[in-house]
Design a protein around this nucleic acid. Structure first.
Lengths: 120, 120
DNA sequence: GCTTGACCTAAAGTAACTTTAGGTTGGTAT
DNA sequence: ATACCAACCTAAAGTTACTTTAGGTCAAGC
């Protein structure tokens, strides 16, 4: 797969993919004879996972730690699971927080409605 | 109210509150004779709203636009409502996206569980 | 054979904070 | 009185996570 396809698949921008490779968040991607990146299915799957970690607010430092566990193979799966579980917990908390904020916005919208109606 | 109390109430850090004032996201806050900020109830309420806008991902540029509508009083309530509604739409989309990402994490966790069990 | 589009790198720019350095003030302990 | 401490202040530099820009390569189509 070429980089534009991976971008489409993951939702990451092309620059972010290059940036992540340079930052060690994914292993160095194979290059064709022309220097262009060629992503294996494994690379792509990893980037899909990275993309959801990012979208759910994991900082790059944690992603790098996770990438290192990933790089050292199946023996570290226990640790990987722990990291993911911890992140999942945080995500749930953030989702709850978003609901709370949405309620605040809704309350404000109702107030606006009240004012707009009272005005007619 | 003093700044530390507003920070506690809104969840914003003290520096963010000062930063927002300097950036024009809230009106200039009154100062006591010693130069310290004294927040009125209105200031505090506005910052609570700002905090939920921020927590739900509104960029500062949009917050500033919204603050300007707020500054020009009740006649702009229609526009304020429109802005808030648009943001609420985006928020719902982001919440859906978070659910999707959480599903990806959960799937990964199941895979890890499978490997860990198969190993025993 | 020349242009166009997709790729490449390195470096500078940006958003939204956070941290640091240095300074004032008001209350409390000595 | 005075020494100290916490909570506030400003201005400026630092940080994170990108995005944008500038400049370059190369295969493919007209």
């Amino acid at each position: 797969m070429k980089i534009s396809e991976v971008a489409e698949r993951t939702g990451l921008s092309i620059s972010v993919i290059r940036f992540y490779e340079k930052s060690g968040l994914c292993p160095p991607i194979e290059r064709g004879s022309d220097g262009k990146r060629t992503f294996s299915a494994i690379d792509t799957d990893w980037l899909v996972l990275l993309a959801s970690l990012r979208a759910t607010g994991m900082p790059m430092s944690d992603m790098r730690a996770f990438a290192e566990l990933y790089a050292s193979g199946d023996e570290k799966i226990g640790e990987r699971k722990a990291a993911l579980l911890a992140h999942r917990q945080g995500l749930e908390a953030r989702q709850t927080e978003l609901d709370r904020c949405r309620a605040i916005l809704d309350r404000k919208l109702e107030i606006y409605d009240g004012i707009l109606e009272g005005r007619t």
